[in-house]
Design a protein around this nucleic acid. Structure first.
Lengths: 229, 229
DNA sequence: CGGTGAATTGACGCTGCTCAATAGCGGTGG
DNA sequence: CCACCGCTATTGAGCAGCGTCAATTCACCG
């Protein structure tokens, strides 16, 4: 009856105090795909890796939040995903990153060498399969997001975002968003003003509650779900 | 000096003629990832699989073209990719499809059982790795497309589409598009009218030539490339 | 408290959508 | 062979949703 809930292991985080290591790079307890992992910290806004850099590491968020994005030459930005505690990112079939990764807030990530992972995958089919499933999960998210970006209106996009964040980081019905309105806009293909207006409209309708710009409660999930079709 | 180009081994494919089978479902010459494949035909507009159906097969386009898409409940459609000869599709980590696949024109595909593939992946790390790379390639395309859908204007989207199609299906500088304006619009997050207007504008500028609605020549690739940043 | 970045709100304009009419094209049959 | 039909594409006119620019207001932190 232990180790049955692979996907939602947000539990392990407490009771590590006895193992506190001496090195500044703390070794994490459970690694990524079974491999040993070292911890690394990034300040709010700090770059973790840039587009075009060699992709030598795989990351998992321990604390905080990470945005991965692409830029056009004139500065237009498209955030393709927010990575929250428990999520992996930086995985890549090619040699170099095609996205840039930045810490949204002060963030701690676990890091594993890509070569160690690929070495392990050669002998262990379980790891190879896990790598594939990780990439496939990202692909499904991207497909869902293309539908949002190509065919949903502003209100539908914001509602979809809120429901996703609610699912991923709500603790007691209250959601504390780590990212600003501009980040949300660049994720949803909108401007920050349109995001703000959509949130105000939803609050006006009584569908959400705003207690501080980044503290949001969903007051009617069924109706919100119906809005994204 | 043999077997050094792992990724592009489309070579081994000839000299199977002696094995030509009697069945109506002709065994294809070149398999998918080395596995034997049966051919299957679909008429223009015919569904190959639907969203929610069990994902039991992997497909490769032999002739024709395939669109994969998602729908909203009110009929809005987002085409996530066009699959042209040589492309694989229908690959999926989950048990059921999250997209619908349809033949854009009369199409022949090669089909391989998913279980055969996953069985082979268990013992053959090369196949497992190839599966991962296939999914990773789709993911990169999706990330590029999210940037297009979220942040590019109509003209930039159409230009990006033309350059991609040119790369993938141009033979002698002339490109014969298999899909209609509505399909292009649903791929680019635009209406068919906006696609048509953008193409007319590009022809007006002398950047492309239109000889029949679906026969397009690119007259100035460098300038077109500069337009997508 | 004051300062600074984030968020809200308003006014206005533009890009792309909607609705509608017309033109082109490919296939079919007299 | 050509006339006809249906589907696809083009083009126009008007409109609306979202972006842009600008002015406050808010919240957080020293």
């Amino acid at each position: 009856m232990f180790d049955t809930h692979g996907a939602l292991d947000k539990s392990r985080s407490s009771d590590f105090s006895t193992l506190a290591p001496a090195s500044p790079q703390v070794v994490e307890l459970r690694g990524i795909m079974g491999l040993p992992t070292t911890a690394s910290s990034y300040g709010r806004g700090e770059e973790i890796y840039g587009e075009g850099e060699p992709a030598d590491y795989l990351y998992r968020v321990t604390r905080g939040a990470v945005r991965t994005y692409k830029l056009l030459s004139d500065g237009r930005r498209q955030i393709d995903a927010f990575h929250l505690p428990g999520d992996t990112f930086g995985f890549n079939a090619g040699d170099s990153h095609v996205l840039t990764a930045e810490a949204v807030v002060d963030t701690v990530v676990g890091v594993v060498k890509r070569r160690a992972l690929e070495g392990a995958a050669k002998t262990d089919a379980k790891i190879a399969c896990e790598m594939w499933r990780t990439t496939a999960r990202e692909l499904r998210h991207a497909q869902e997001h293309m539908l949002l970006l190509g065919r949903k209106n502003a209100l539908e996009r914001v509602v979809a975002f809120l429901l996703d964040m609610d699912r991923r980081l709500s603790v007691v019905g209250l959601m504390a968003l780590p990212m600003c309105r501009r980040d949300i806009g660049d994720y949803l293909g909108l401007t920050l003003e349109t995001v703000s207006r959509s949130l105000s409209a939803l609050a006006e309708m009584g569908l959400i509650g705003l207690s501080g710009a980044r503290q949001i409660t969903l007051r009617d999930r069924p109706r919100l779900r119906a809005m994204t079709e």
